[in-house]
């Protein structure tokens, strides 16, 4: 009988069986609970929609009226008609470059040490616990670290309240994120890959360089992009290390002098400056700047998540 049972018959008999066991009663409680849970999800998604709609609505005067001018104007928290974001965008890009250069090699190296060289040593265990705790330290505390170490102690090298000090502070802030995600990516690479390389005589470093790291690359890349978007959206530590909130005069400093000795701002810091001003025209400026930052961060994040799902491999 089992051989000739059509799928349809099987399915209906399963339904019959369910009906017999449950006495034909429908799972009312299950439905109700499912709807309640679905509502919580709906509210959460609705928040996202409300956020975007509200920003578009408030930003409309700027988006429609003087968007080009807005993109090319500098930071000015006293006059909404002159206010813009180009200094902020430049600041955020410079900060991002510093984060990429400093924290990515450092974080990935740390992860390689933890996963490939010392997975069971006591030092590695200590570092692991330490990294997890660092990941939970509030961002403003990193601002204090940046202020004391990068602005004051190492002021001779960083130039004080410069974009370099800001970038180093953000690099330290995202370091745990890079380490944790890179570790996870390395851990997902199966032993057989390593054994294969070792088996043909590769040294540990050769194994890591040409087998383990390439296999883990998509996962590592995802983690670094999440870290980058975190850095791009962070304002609190930058306020402490000197991110400028009022009016940023670049004067006639060259690009390099601007980086090594001039003041700096960034998108989140500029949004904070504008959000503190009152009046509908500043509302529009704040909303427009928020929209730009939101798009930037969501695109980086979305790309990272897509990348992860795209390259998710079950070895």
């Amino acid at each position: 009988m089992a051989l000739s049972t059509p799928a349809k018959f099987g399915a209906s008999s399963a339904a019959n069986l369910t009906a017999r066991i449950t006495g034909g009663k429908r799972d009312v409680k299950g439905r109700v609970v499912e709807w309640i849970l679905l509502t919580t999800l709906g509210i959460t998604l609705l928040v996202l929609v409300a956020l975007v709609v509200n920003l578009l609505d408030r930003a409309w005067p700027v988006l429609n009226g003087r968007f080009g001018d807005f993109l090319s104007s500098g930071l000015d928290a006293s006059n909404a008609d002159e206010a813009g974001v180009w200094q902020a965008i430049r600041g955020t890009l410079t900060l991002a470059i510093i984060v990429v250069v400093v924290s990515f090699p450092l974080g990935i190296s740390c992860a390689v040490y933890l996963e490939e060289y010392a997975s069971r040593s006591r030092l590695a265990r200590l570092i692991r616990i330490n990294v997890r705790n660092l990941a939970g330290v509030p961002s403003i505390v990193y601002g204090i670290l940046g202020l004391t170490i990068f602005v004051k102690f190492a002021g001779g090298i960083t130039g004080g309240r410069t974009v370099i000090a800001g970038g180093l502070t953000l690099s330290v802030l995202v370091l745990p994120v890079v380490v944790i995600t890179a570790s996870e990516a390395l851990r997902a690479v199966p032993r057989s890959i390593r054994e294969g390389a070792m088996g043909v005589g590769a040294t540990q470093w050769e194994t890591v360089r040409s087998h383990v790291l390439p296999s883990a690359a998509p996962g590592i890349l995802t983690g670094t992009m999440l870290a980058l978007s975190r850095a791009a959206g962070e304002a609190a530590p930058l306020l402490l290390v000197g991110g400028i909130t009022g009016l940023l005069r670049t004067g006639n400093l060259g690009l390099w002098e601007q980086i090594t000795e001039g003041g700096f701002t960034s998108m989140p810091v500029a949004i904070f400056s504008y959000a503190r001003q009152t009046g509908a025209d500043f509302q529009a400026v704040t909303a427009a700047a928020s929209l730009i930052l939101l798009v930037l961060v969501v695109v980086i994040n979305g790309l990272a998540i897509w990348l992860r799902n795209r390259f998710e491999r079950n070895w």
């Binding site: 509200n54 509302q283 939101l294």
Partner: peptide
């Protein structure tokens, strides 16, 4: 992934959302 996007919203943007909405 959509819920994960929510995690990426910068806090300054949500701060502005708090006073404007």
């Amino acid at each position: 992934p959509i819920v994960e996007v929510l995690a990426g919203i910068p806090s300054v943007v949500l701060g502005y959302f708090a006073i404007s909405f």
